[in-house]
Design a protein around this nucleic acid. Structure first.
Length: 956
RNA sequence: GCGGGAGUGGUGUAACGGCAGCCACGCCAGACUUAGGAUCUGGUGCCUUCGGGCGUGCGGGUUCGACUCCCGCCUCCCGCACCA
């Protein structure tokens, strides 16, 4: 072994030394334009800014595997490249540390969550440092730091202290609402005034209730997702489609509870519309669009209940439909089983001769309704799916009246109508809706077609949902017959408005965000309750409201399926803390603290802003810093982080919540940007093979041998499966192991070489050696393996070598710029292989080529590059050395080889001058012996000659 | 069911509508070695009668020319899923 070979041991020595030096010299300290972190800004003042960021890690106890750093390395390579290429780059890293897993881990280990969490953070920080990432460590923080969550609480107070002005389409301060209400220029918004009297005559306490109902953060008693197994309520986004908790997979039940909500629905339109202005993948935008779920249609009111219910008062059923044009085809109505009108509408007795299918076989409507409601509430979401699309329901014993033709429509409850969407009630049009058709079929209800069917359509086979002219749709006042869908919708909606029976409207699938959790390990709310139990903001001067120490921070959990249990926040046990005496302007009073805590999404909603100066204890973020790092880049630009990399699993959780908070902060004037993340990239996942033996047990993947496409462990055949990496799958490979075996640079190059950043890929330890060989060859270009001396010569490089160099520069730049690091590595490899081949052991590579090569590889293998750069005699870090520019002169060849095709098949190659025109190309091609053979005696129908590309003879 | 994405050598992948398979792993051969799981060099899509033929999931289309664009299928992955 030559004494100065680039071995793993040498790589590690080099890496540790450079990591120390970077830390000591503050190489990656990014200067702000103003404030405490502005030292050295003159150096970068004329540079454009570039803010690159990862979704910060959650410091769980499980440790990192080789899949975790992929995204971090992607932003690292990018930030290093952009810095070398002349940007002022901000690349920070922090830790998202409140939340369920940390709390559960702490409960398991019997340690306070702060202790385990901080230990985990230290471990991850050390691992990241060992990978050589260029984070500015002065800007790091964790969401559990009081100096951080002080501002999380402060933002909550801003949200609590504002309301959404629907006319202006933005949030405004609550004081402005009160002023307008007092001035009489505004009345309370819809659904905010329970008193049936105008604002002017309301008492102080009543006014308080009305104001609170406007707030963007508000207390609300409503059915929420209660998870007894976790002992906490959850947001819609945290519940899986089959009705279980995303964390822990426990059953979740709908239960009315009074909880904090955030009025994210007020922002539905902006969250939806502004997606068009973001540089995100289409699939991710689509996920958000689907989650917000905007649909336009009409609300229509049906009088109901008087018929078949002697002496009963009429009620009004309001439905939402996207197809008001089909109103004439409504033949019955359905309420969700939990609809508030169900009780009032239920008839005392079945009318004479009631269809037994409609009554559930029970003696009275009340019995049937109660039985069906019980059945519906018992059934979890999963059961509902298992039951397939078979429609069930019972009749209430009453009818409603179709406003358009006076026809009586029987009113049912059925679980295919959901409480949470639209108004929780529908008009059923079996002719044009498949679900209604299914129900009508099962219950023997009529079908009235209102859209003209194509010839041969069979109404007994299903609903018709295609296009067509309206039919069967007229009364004395209007006729939709013959109209197309859009015109019919406009016509009937207009008529409904004039009759006061409905109006055009928009609904969303998005629900308000359930914001409280019955957990210890989270941000306390900066809220206290007064003697009337009204929530009051804790004054800014008293922030942060510190999370108190308690003896028992474990949540009160229940048996998984104990749906009737009630949440009990751990903080309620901190009895000394829960009551507090404060002077909030009217003398010292006793207050009761809010004992819920915030969900773990709170801290990640705004952390990108805190990176700009985490040490600022006077404000959330300096507006000038926000403008510099996040501000719009011109008219119409949304601003935001320039590159945000993270997993796709946050498509509708973190990314929606953060956008919402950002828009509120924008409306209130705290940030100039309209969106937090201008460009978002979802990195792929790294998967691995796992192997099971005959009994189905996992065997160590590292010891499995392949023979002729089959796999063996200790001589016995095993099965291969492909998927996650994990300890229990016995296929865990850690970055530490790889760094120990090859060094961080090799690990970095390997991870980046296996595909574009967005691409998922398998891990293959045996392929890592290829990246090591590349780095060894680059090392040999600069360093003599026998003597350790620098080999580079001062000779002029050969023309051919210059062409190879500049072609590589061009390709490497493209690869870095487009996050296709595999391309950059392929071009670097080509250049290196070229140099290795042209220059044997005795002819050193020219410095004019070796130096750019070192700089090309610097973003990928920064330690190696620093070492070689320094040995080449440079004092400055590669990080602050300009990235090589390709010289056009060396990108164009003097002569080019072009393919010559005959009838589209390549038959020969000719070499022509680079500038040769079509005629010259054709002449050269005809002169070629092989081609001449093909052309002889043939009729040439056409000749296509593309300069620099090819010639194609089309023979007839 | 609806929506989105993807199908290229044994493997990961690459190709402004213009020579399919760059680069790497693996494999084969060789060099240097006491040795090789180190390093270096060469070869490696398939078939072949060595002329060539066939090849980018399948079938059509547009084009002088299609991995690339269009239409219809198939398969896989992801998201949503009784959303009125």
């Amino acid at each position: 072994m030559p004494p100065h070979r680039y071995t793993p041991a040498l790589a590690q020595r080099i890496e540790l030394a450079w990591q120390d030096r970077w830390a000591a010299e503050g190489t990656f300290h990014t200067p702000n334009p103003v404030g405490r972190l502005s030292a050295g800004f003159e150096r970068v003042a004329d540079r454009p800014k570039y803010f690159a960021m990862d979704m910060f890690p959650y410091p769980s106890g499980a440790g990192l595997h080789v899949g975790h750093p992929l995204g971090y390395l992607g932003t690292d390579v990018t930030s290093r490249f952009r810095r070398m290429d002349g940007d002022n780059v901000l690349h920070p890293m922090g830790y998202d540390a409140f939340g369920l897993p940390a709390e559960q881990y702490a409960v398991q280990t019997g340690q306070h969550p702060r202790i385990t969490t901080e230990a985990n953070i230290a471990a991850i920080r050390a691992q990241l440092r060992r990978l050589g990432v260029d984070h500015d460590d002065r800007r790091s923080f964790a969401t559990i730091d009081p100096a951080y969550y002080k501002w999380t609480q402060w933002i909550f107070l801003q949200i609590f202290g504002s309301w959404f002005d629907a006319d202006a389409g933005r949030a405004r301060r609550i004081e402005e609402l009160v002023a307008e209400l007092d001035a009489g220029t505004r009345e309370p918004g819809e659904g905010t005034n329970p008193y049936d009297r105008p604002w002017a005559v309301l008492g102080a306490a009543e006014r308080g209730v009305v104001v609170d109902a406007h707030r963007l953060a508000y207390l609300h008693e409503a059915p929420v997702n209660w998870c007894p197994g976790l002992g906490t309520v959850l947001s819609n986004e945290e519940v899986t489609p089959d009705g279980r908790s995303e964390r822990g997979n426990f059953p979740v039940f709908r239960r009315p509870l009074k909880q904090w909500m955030m009025r994210i629905t007020a922002y539905a339109d902006r969250l939806l519309d502004d997606l068009d202005r973001l540089d995100w993948s289409d699939s991710l935008k689509l996920m958000q669009r689907n989650w917000i779920g905007r649909s336009t249609g009409a609300r229509i009111r049906f009088a109901a209940g008087a018929v078949g219910r002697p002496g009963g008062a009429a009620e009004t059923i309001e439905v939402f439909t996207t197809r008001p044009d089909t109103l004439f085809g409504a033949t019955y109505m359905v309420l969700a089983p939990e609809h508030p009108l169900v009780e009032a509408l239920t008839a005392d007795a079945w009318p004479e001769g009631a269809d037994p299918r409609w009554t559930g076989g029970l003696a009275t409507p009340a019995e049937a309704v109660r039985a069906y409601q019980r059945q519906a509430s018992r059934r979890s979401e999963l059961d509902r799916q298992d039951a397939g699309r078979e429609k069930t329901g019972v009749w209430l014993g009453v009818t409603a009246v179709n406003p358009v033709d006076g026809r009586e429509l029987p009113v049912f409850i059925a679980d295919y109508v959901l409480t949470g969407y639209g108004t929780g009630a529908i008009m059923a049009v079996p002719g044009e809706d498949q679900r209604d058709w299914d129900f009508a079929r099962a219950f023997g209800l009529g079908i009235v077609p209102t859209v003209e069917r194509p010839a041969g359509f069979d109404d007994s086979s299903g609903a018709y949902t295609g296009p067509g002219r309206m039919i069967n749709s007229s009364n004395e006042e209007i006729s939709l017959d013959g109209l197309d869908k859009a015109t019919a919708i406009a016509t009937v909606t207009d008529w409904l408005v004039r009759r006061g029976a409905g109006e055009a409207t928009t609904t969303y699938k998005l629900r308000d965000w359930l914001f409280s959790r019955q957990r210890y390990w989270g941000e306390p709310f900066p809220i206290v309750y007064d003697e009337h139990d009204r929530p009051v903001a804790v004054p800014e001067s008293l922030l942060p409201v510190l999370l108190p120490e308690v003896d028992d921070y474990s949540p009160k959990t229940f048996s998984d399926d104990d749906a009737d249990s009630a949440p009990e926040p751990p903080l309620s046990r901190a009895t000394e803390w829960t009551t507090v005496e404060l002077d909030l302007g009217d003398g010292v009073q006793k207050y009761r603290r809010e004992t819920n805590t915030m969900p773990n999404w709170a801290g990640s909603c705004w952390y990108y802003l805190r990176y700009l100066d985490p040490g600022d204890d006077t404000q959330m973020v300096d507006p000038e810093l926000e403008r510099y790092w996040m501000g719009p880049r011109g008219e119409g630009d949304v601003g935001g982080v320039d590159l945000y990399v993270g997993g796709v699993e946050h498509a509708v959780l973190h990314l929606l919540y953060a956008r919402f908070w950002h828009k509120v902060l924008h409306d209130l004037g705290y940030v100039s940007s309209e969106e937090p993340f201008r460009r978002l990239v979802n990195q792929g996942y790294i998967s691995a093979y796992a192997y099971t033996d005959e009994r189905g047990f996992y065997v160590p993947a590292a010891d499995v041998e392949e023979k002729d496409g089959r796999f063996f462990y200790e001589g016995e055949p095993v099965n291969r499966e492909y998927g996650k990496i994990g300890k229990s799958l016995k296929n865990m490979v850690t970055p530490d192991e790889m760094i120990g075996a090859y060094g961080a640079d090799t690990f970095r190059v390997y991870e980046m070489s296996t595909g574009p950043l967005e691409q998922s890929r398998p891990w293959e330890t045996k392929a890592v050696v290829g990246s090591q060989r590349l780095l060894q060859r680059i090392w040999r270009v600069v360093v003599d393996e026998q003597t350790g001396a620098v080999r580079a010569s001062d000779a002029e490089p050969a023309e051919e070598t210059l062409r190879a160099l500049h072609k590589a520069i061009d390709g490497v730049r493209d690869g870095y710029a487009t996050l296709r690091f595999n391309i950059a590595i392929a071009r670097i490899t080509e250049l290196t292989n070229h140099l290795t081949q042209v220059h044997g052991a005795d002819t050193p590579v020219s410095r004019a080529v070796a130096e750019p090569l070192v700089l090309l590889v610097a973003p990928l293998a920064p330690h190696l590059a620093e070492e070689l750069w320094s040995r080449l005699g440079h004092d400055e870090s590669t990080a602050w050395t300009p990235f090589p520019q390709a010289d056009e002169r060396w990108l164009v060849e003097d002569t080019v080889q072009v393919a010559v095709q005959v009838n589209g098949k390549v038959r020969s190659q000719v070499t022509v001058p680079a500038g040769a025109d079509a005629a010259a190309l054709e002449a050269a091609a005809r002169a070629d012996e092989k081609i001449a053979g093909y052309l002889e005696g043939a009729t040439i129908r056409r000749v296509v000659a593309v300069p620099g590309r090819l010639v194609n003879f089309v023979l007839g």
